[in-house]
Design a protein around this nucleic acid. Structure first.
Length: 259
DNA sequence: GCCCGTGTTACTAC
DNA sequence: TGTAGTAACACGGG
């Protein structure tokens, strides 16, 4: 699930329920999601403290611990989420639970491809995020044009977190479909009009998805059709094409996105 | 058992 | 140096 809009939704969940009140307990149900920190240290550092205002960079959720200098950083991999709930509805893939007086915040993740970090100071935080590109929602049209000036495939570039942070495989397909660009093209081959079109559609898709707190499963979106066995283009009705681009499963409309 | 997958990284090779 | 391809991580679904 998690691409930029989903992580933004998790950020809001945390901001609404987890900020400014004492953390009464931290329970690690599966230490396999802890990166560079033990369950014991996580609990000892956080218990009795409070989370500050969370921020997001691409798919990273960054949560300062009130009073510093520590920061909790979460990444959700392909299957992670953050849920707010009462104490009694534990689910199978809950891995870490932050308890408060009025409920629990659960880090849930089936595949454990990523996880949760406790960074002990700002230097460590900067080191972790140093290789991350600008957030896809923040990047200007001019900066975006500059980022595209490389020989690589456009789709690979859009999903490379070191270039641009926040887009995943599904969103990249959605954006290229809207911009009517063949996913196989090289980034540097786009003319200025096409590059600006990608930037505009990227912002539209992200804004709408962020509003919904996730990528909405609408049939008018490519994403809403890609799992149908014989999916058709929501715009022109022709059969969607499937293949691999940059090593990832890719869906596009062979008519609307003709190279 | 087979293949696939909303993510990332390490490694190899051109 | 830049780029592409592959395997690996762990788990579930078709």
């Amino acid at each position: 699930m998690p691409e930029l809009p989903d992580v933004e939704g998790f950020r809001r969940t945390l901001a609404e329920h987890g900020v400014g009140k004492p953390i009464t307990g931290v329970t690690t149900l599966d230490a396999g999601v802890l990166r560079g920190v033990s369950a014991r240290k996580l609990r000892e550092v956080l218990r009795g403290r409070r989370f500050g205002e969370p921020r997001r960079l691409g798919k990273w959720l960054i949560v300062p611990v009130d009073g510093g200098p520590e920061t909790v950083v979460l990444h959700f991999g392909m299957t992670g989420s953050l849920e707010w709930s009462g104490p009694d509805d534990r689910q199978r893939h809950d891995r870490v639970i932050f308890a408060f007086d009025d409920g629990e915040l659960r880090y849930r993740d089936m595949r454990k491809l990523q996880g949760l970090r406790l960074l002990v100071d700002d230097a460590e935080l900067h080191r972790l995020l140093a290789g991350t590109g600008p957030d896809a929602l923040e990047v200007s049209q001019e900066r975006f044009r500059e980022l595209l000036g490389r020989r690589r495939g456009l789709k690979q570039l859009l999903t490379d977190q070191a270039v641009l942070a926040g887009l995943g495989n599904l969103l990249a397909d959605e954006i290229l479909w809207r911009a009517r660009i063949d996913p196989h093209v090289r980034a540097a081959d786009l003319d200025r009009g096409a590059a600006d079109r990608v930037h505009r559609e990227m912002r539209r898709v992200l804004r709408e998805a962020v509003k919904a707190g996730r990528v909405p499963p609408r049939k008018t979106w490519l994403t809403g059709r890609r799992d149908e066995p014989s999916g058709s283009c929501p715009r022109c009705g022709c059969a969607l094409a499937r293949g691999r681009v940059g090593g990832r499963g890719t869906v596009w409309c062979p008519r609307c996105q003709a190279g």
